[in-house]
Design a protein around this nucleic acid. Structure first.
Length: 260
DNA sequence: CATAATGTTTAAGA
DNA sequence: GTCTTAAACATTAT
């Protein structure tokens, strides 16, 4: 489930490969991986991983030859760092075999993400029209950006050009914690509610990272561990309800997230 | 078998 | 042109 907290975990995983040299690039799904064996051999093999960087849901492996590998995880992708002698996980699309007896595996069941060679990170962000990372934003800009969009608040939170990193399920969690109905129009929110959103955005994402994006370890009053229609709300006596917002499944408590 | 699923891009509508 | 919404994409699990 790769949203900001998940990708941050992968970034830490990739960080274990820092200063290792890439001995080999194994491409196991040619259709999916946008790197030809020639390019891999010429531009990636033999280079050193100098850093792992993240913005929103995108992850970069920075190499010492002024380029980098950029990856996106779609809905089912993940990154794993394992001893090379272990077999690559199922659905592995591409593996970087390192000189420290470990390998980094890009894994995905479906084909919605990508992994490719990227030059300068800044120009990539511009091309993608990617907004600032949800954890880097100051309160004022966070609120200003949301106000610019005239849509339901959940749709605005999911807009990567406004704020990068919040996906479908974390938008639900943030709105649940803030006590705001997901269909509320951005124009109908009060200043107080915007501030609460900012506060919960930070808290929810940081908590998720601290728990290594493992929902079973989330606090008891979070929505995510019991994101199911009809279950009891952890904050009041209401029952969790499922609706569609902008075409996506959305869970909320009708009793503590009242519509205006 | 039909439906929904954490994602982004596109095409269409206002 | 600009902004917003809905459909399309690929594959698996229920």
């Amino acid at each position: 489930m790769p949203e900001l907290p998940d990708v941050e975990i992968y970034r830490k995983e990739a960080g274990k490969a820092r200063d290792a040299t890439i001995d080999e690039v194994k491409i196991t799904d040619k259709e999916f991986i946008d790197i030809t064996p020639q390019v891999a051999g010429k531009s990636i093999k033999g280079t050193k991983i100098t850093n792992a960087a993240r913005r929103g849901k995108y992850l970069w492996l920075e190499l010492d030859h002024q380029h980098s590998v950029v990856m996106h995880f779609g809905m089912t992708g993940l990154l794993q760092y394992t001893p090379t002698k272990e077999e690559a996980p199922e659905y592995t699309k591409c593996s970087f075999v390192l000189d420290n007896k470990h390998s980094l595996h890009y894994i995905s069941k479906r084909k919605l993400g990508f992994l490719k060679l990227s030059g300068d990170i800044g120009s990539f962000i511009q091309e993608q029209d990617l907004g600032p990372d949800a954890l880097e934003l100051k309160e004022e800009e966070f609120i200003d950006r949301l106000k610019k969009k005239r849509s339901m608040i959940k749709t605005a939170l999911n807009d990567q050009s406004l704020i990068a990193g919040i996906g479908n399920i974390y938008a639900d969690e943030i709105l649940y914690q803030a006590g705001i109905h997901p269909k509320t129009g951005t124009g109908d929110l009060t200043e107080k509610e915007f501030k609460e959103l900012y506060k919960q955005n930070k808290k929810v994402l940081e908590t998720a990272i601290e728990k290594e994006a493992d929902v079973s370890r989330f606090p008891e009053d979070y929505l995510l561990p019991h994101r199911e229609e009809g279950t009891d709300c952890s904050k009041c006596s209401g029952k969790i309800k499922k609706i569609k917002v902008g075409g996506r499944g959305t869970y909320y408590c009708p009793s503590c997230q009242k519509k205006k």
